[in-house]
Amino acid sequence: MEPTLLVVQFLNGIQLGTLLFLVASGLTLVFGILDVINLAHGVVYMVGAYAAASTFVRSGSLALAIAIAPVAALLVGLLLDRLVLRFLYDRNHLDQVLATFGVILFVDEAVRAIFGPAALPYPLPPAFEWSLELPGGATYPAWRLVIIVSGLVLAAILFGILHRTRAGMVVRAAATDPGMLAMLGVDIRRLFLVVLGAGSALAGFAGALAGPIVAVQPGMGDSVLILSFVVIVTGGLGSVQGALLGSFLVGLADTLGRSFLTDLLRLLLPPAAANEVGPALASMAIYLVMAIVLLIRPQGLVSLRRAAR
């Protein structure tokens, strides 16, 4: 457990956290505003990755690939709203879950039918095939740094918009108390579309960023979707701050758990047992973190709405 490894794994945790935040922020706002639980958000992330991968492989231009991904994701997000989501605004959560589950089944299968079941090639852009020397001798892949930096910049912009502009204020107010805003004459559905579009674009962008370091394949959005759920439940539904907090918590718990838990257990258990239990426990780490947070604060770390009643 050398300190340099710790630094690298810490950065990996932050990197996973930024990706999760890009997906989770849209999910949590969409839920906050219209009380809609949208499982199809993970699909949009996948669309971003596929759009970027196929553009990059065909054109060789990374800039083009990264630019196209959010646009494609935005279009798919809005199309899904037209076709399915808008009929679900007033439905209960069960209906929303099932209908958007149906959407996932369809889109995953459609992608499989069109692009095949295997992962799409999305090589690391040559310009980023180097690693940064960290103090202490470790190295860190440049592309992951790109993910961290661009993700954090986007998060900062998002917070700037939400907290400094009038529109952002309206969005935050809507996530806290939609009924009140409707009374003030704000068109909630229009606001919802804007947020859904922006959230989709962010998720698509996340897909384009993640593409080179994960497998671009059908169903790739599912695991990200579920992790995002863990993030926003842990952070507090509807809160972007909570999503940020939750993202880093989940990202760090996952990577640090995977790299150090087995070693830690060796201190307590015989090595053979540690090798058995360690990985199992590591894969459960984020859910355990979530369970602990919920035990203490059932409403999540940052709760916007008044505690029920």
Partner: peptide, 14 residues
Amino acid sequence: HWALLFGPFLVLVV
């Protein structure tokens, strides 16, 4: 690719 049919069917059922 039967999910191509089942997915939309599920949406309709809902």
